[in-house]
Design a protein around this nucleic acid. Sequence first.
DNA 1: TGTTTGAGTGTACGGATGTTCACCGACGTT
DNA 2: AACGTCGGTGAACATCCGTACACTCAAACA
Lengths: 214, 214
Amino acid sequence: MVESVAQPRPESRGERKERTRRAILDAALHLCENSSLVALSLRQVAKEVGIVPTAFYRHFESIEALGLALVDESFVSLRAMLRDIRRGDPSYADIVDRSVETLVEHVHRQRSHFLFIARERAAGPLSVREAIRREIELCEHELATDLARLTGTGSWSAEDLRVLSNLIVTAMVATAEQIMAAPDRPGAEKQIVENARTQLRMVLVGALNWHSRT
Amino acid sequence: MVESVAQPRPESRGERKERTRRAILDAALHLCENSSLVALSLRQVAKEVGIVPTAFYRHFESIEALGLALVDESFVSLRAMLRDIRRGDPSYADIVDRSVETLVEHVHRQRSHFLFIARERAAGPLSVREAIRREIELCEHELATDLARLTGTGSWSAEDLRVLSNLIVTAMVATAEQIMAAPDRPGAEKQIVENARTQLRMVLVGALNWHSRT
DNA sequence: TGTTTGAGTGTACGGATGTTCACCGACGTT
DNA sequence: AACGTCGGTGAACATCCGTACACTCAAACA
């Protein structure tokens, strides 16, 4: 009967290491929520994880390197969101509603990641800020490509598409920030979401009546 | 002949205190530029100013209180900018160009203040973040009032005016952030400014073709 | 005139921080 | 069975941190 109990299969060396690494990432994400990477100490992270401070170096050479790893990880979440938004018929008129809805859902599901990006984008170490900016620019570029497909090869210059993408991404980032900062009062978020929809529609109305200067 | 030399009029007690206070604010602003309030120590500030750490308490009860003072001060700069933008005939067609131009000028002239707001807006202590958000909302409200005057009592609901203001302010904040993060390569800023103009025009085209749902 | 006030000083403390070093001991390999 | 690898340990360090306390001494005031 003894062998019928759940056998926790002894972890391999690599598995153990990966588990600790994850714990460090999670701890950092959690400890950052009310401050910033630049105010996060190696010892706090170690204590939260339950390891001795020096063990931290077995996984990252500095807090800044940890930050870069968190950027990579966070943008995996963000790209998953973009894939979700892109999925489905992109030419439908309810594209605005669906996009905003998807944004809200992902912000809630990956709150820590979005919080991290929103904070460190402005306040992180230089290398982290640069990494985030680069990733966001990538998102804008992808959005521009999508928009090009949507509008066909109409009266839009590539340049204007990029500018429009930048505007939309900026507005969506701001919406995400508002949602995360919103008090728990249920009405507040409803309002933010409704505003985001209206803004996207306004921008779309502008886009439809826009003519790029040739 | 002695009395002909510049007589530095012995500072009064209050003047001396104010001078030290200013020095503290400036030092904090300067030390924050590459990190954040939450990573700023009382001792760093004191050392930079040239006073002993405990003397700090004669002026502020904590770094957080210092931060709130900096928010007030920074928004004096920002409101000065808004006044500049509003000045002059508001109905002219070059309102976009003039607004962006004024923004750029003020961002350069009060770089530290704008940097401070952009950073602490996302990463500062809770009370600082709240103070900044409140001030920005005030700006949005003022803009909405201006827009109402511009459009007359046309097809715009008060609600939509607020949403439009929010979008415009968000885009301008993002532009300010881009300018401050821009490399010194001269072309980069030109590009950002041009993009900002285009975005404002796009939004305006959207606004002109917008009809609020009654 | 003498007295009070208050910005700035100097010392001292308990605790947190990053980093070093030598060490352990279980896993994986030979 | 013997050995090397490597994630984690524990003590030690120099330095920074916020804050308490007793102090000076010139301006402000009576």
